[in-house]
Simulated assay, not measured.
Amino acid sequence: MIDPTYRFWSPYEDKPNGGPYSWHILDCDQRRWVTVTGSPKAVPRDPDAIKILRRHIDQLDPAVHKITVSDEGDIVSISSHPNDEAAWFVHYPRYDPRDVPNGHTTLMRTQMEEVDRVGHSVDMVRYEDGPGKSQLGIFKYSMIYIHLDRIWNELQIMMALPKHELIVPFGRIVLDDVEPRILGFTVPFIPGGTFDENKTRPFRFAWLQQLTSLVDELHFKFGIYHQDIAGRNIVVDPVTGKIRLFDFEFAAKIGSPSVDIYRNDIDQVIFTIYEILTLDVHFREIASWDQDVKAIEEMAEWDVKIPIEAGNGGIKEIRSFLAEWAAGRRSKAQNGPVNATSQLDWPGFPPQTPVLYTSRDRAYNIEGGSS
């Protein structure tokens, strides 16, 4: 079940001078778009429109595309007219087996059984992985075109990375059944929950060592920044007892234009360990460019809420190790660019290819013209 906090998202809006305002909202649970229209007083910002939609969504017919609301947030009118549907066309890239590294296999969408919807464009699925063998996996895809390049980027990076005990492995490329277009990909489901989901297990010093060594390897061996290190993207493998990192959606080749200086992996490791141990996430609830890792590093005491497993010292040793590692990495960063020993490389998002669609009595393709 999708966390209610992340169920709705409004990526764009129409705000003419004087109103009315229209917020186009994606319901990630029902995979539908609903436009909320009202006066600037009723829906001045997208959170206000989402709050109103949350009140009414369970009473709306699935065919409803738009609701108009009063200043008090009550529904004045509804529309199921196709012209009021805000859904964007998603131009999925065409699949070409020649572009796929050896050893990676495909899966048709109809070969998967949906088990649950766990996040924005993230489902838990089950599929057959060999004769009589059922695989539980996580299917990641894109419902809007502005996320397509991120999904493509992550898919390519996951395929390019060699198998690693500290990284959730790549699963299958998922293809549309109508024509061979890449919808997304799967990774195996690892039970036990992320650090954000499971906040009761005692913390192991070894997990800190594994995370820092993995970040070093990503930088110095593979030449990439992860750029989204957080407790929500780390699980503990129940078989090995070691951490596994996932979600390479924002990852970038070091030195490329995709590197975000405000998504520094070193700082993110410090934020992550602090958040796991203290359950305090407020330092990263603000815009990335306003986040201050020094406030954590210079804090006299951390208010630790999670037990630390005995054997390798406590919070003092953890903070000392973190400080020494971060200082060493920052010192290296001042000495010039990273020279990765096994630099990863992957293709950029492919050029668009025509997709035929029908409008009334004429056939068109997305590149223009009719037939």
Rank of each mutant, 00 (worst) to 15 (best):
I2R: 00
P4G: 11
R7K: 07
F8Q: 03
W9Y: 10
E13Q: 12
K15V: 07
P16L: 06
H24F: 13
D27G: 08
T35L: 03
G38Y: 05
A42F: 05
A42C: 04
V43I: 09
V43P: 00
P47V: 05
D48L: 02
R55H: 07
D58S: 15
L60P: 03
V64G: 10
K66E: 15
I67C: 04
V69A: 02
I75K: 00
S80T: 01
H81P: 01
A86F: 01
A87G: 12
R94M: 06
D96V: 09
D96G: 04
P97F: 03
R98C: 03
R98L: 08
D99V: 00
P101M: 08
T105R: 09
T105S: 11
L107G: 03
M112Y: 01
E113G: 07
E113F: 01
D123Q: 12
R126I: 06
G130V: 08
S134R: 11
F139S: 08
F139D: 10
I146D: 13
I146Q: 09
H147S: 15
R150H: 08
R150G: 00
L155E: 07
M158Y: 00
K163A: 04
V168H: 01
F170R: 03
R172G: 04
D177H: 04
V178F: 08
R181D: 09
G184M: 06
F189T: 00
P191T: 01
N198G: 10
T200V: 14
L214F: 01
L218R: 06
H226M: 10
H226T: 06
I229L: 13
R244L: 15
E249I: 06
F250I: 06
I254S: 03
S258H: 15
V259T: 03
Y262C: 12
R263K: 15
D265E: 07
E275L: 03
D280H: 08
D280L: 02
D280S: 02
V281Q: 10
D290M: 15
V293H: 13
M299Q: 14
E301A: 14
E309C: 09
I315C: 01
E317S: 05
I318F: 08
I318H: 05
L322I: 10
W325V: 07
G328C: 14
A333V: 02
N339V: 14
G348L: 06
G348E: 13
V355F: 08
L356N: 09
L356P: 04
S359V: 15
S359K: 15
R360S: 14
A363C: 05
A363T: 00
Y364K: 05
